[in-house]
């Protein structure tokens, strides 16, 4: 068995120190050593994106990053989005536009969409579909995920936003 290595990085702005084998994957360190179970494991081959985290300003799939590669870097996971009891605009958008069902892909989706909106604050539907194509969802068919990201983008730009699904849309008195 390989000797363990001490690694220090910042997880959602909090400094952390872990002792890991050099072969240990970031996703396992996050989930099993740092109680950060928002990012999930869906495929182990970098296809599904359920494990997406933001590593120093780049989206990475934590199932194919070694923890030792993260020395002194900033790791952002879904756990770092809501602040002071306030949801991030993306979290609100996914809820308002019904952009999730089983929820398994959602942390990775939101983390990837965060990076998209950092780079392109006013994305077209085509931009969104291209940027999100490394994150698989088996439940929603993506249509409402696109709307959720558009909702968040508008809100972050300071525009007025409203759900596409008014509560009483089909109710008649």
């Amino acid at each position: 068995m390989a000797k363990k290595t001490a690694v220090s990085f910042r997880l959602n702005q909090t400094p952390v120190d872990v002792l890991v084998e050099p072969r240990e994957l970031l996703i396992h360190t996050l989930r099993e050593k740092l109680a950060t179970t928002g990012p999930h494991i869906g495929c182990e081959t970098s296809h599904c994106g359920a494990c997406t985290v933001d590593l120093d300003g780049i989206s990475v799939k934590a199932c194919t990053v070694l923890t030792v590669q993260c020395e002194d870097l900033d790791v952002l996971t879904i756990e770092g989005f809501a602040k002071g009891g306030q949801l991030h605009a993306l979290q609100e958008g996914f809820m308002q536009e019904h952009g999730l069902q089983c929820g398994f892909c959602t942390p990775g989706m939101i983390t990837r969409a965060y990076r998209l909106l950092q780079e392109i604050p006013d994305p077209t539907e085509e931009d969104i579909r291209y940027w999100m194509s490394g994150n698989l969802c088996r439940c929603t068919g993506y249509q409402n995920i696109v709307k959720a990201i558009q909702y968040a983008a508008a809100k972050l730009r300071g525009e007025a936003v409203a759900t596409s699904h008014p509560l009483m849309e089909e109710v008649t008195v």
Binding site: T37, L87, Q91, L100, G103, L167
Partner: peptide
């Protein structure tokens, strides 16, 4: 008949779901 927002969502959008793993 209402388009009620989902009660499940707050935990999933914050990474606070509890899946088996």
């Amino acid at each position: 008949g209402c388009a009620r927002k989902r009660r499940e969502d707050p935990r999933f959008i914050q990474g606070r779901g509890t899946y088996v793993d």
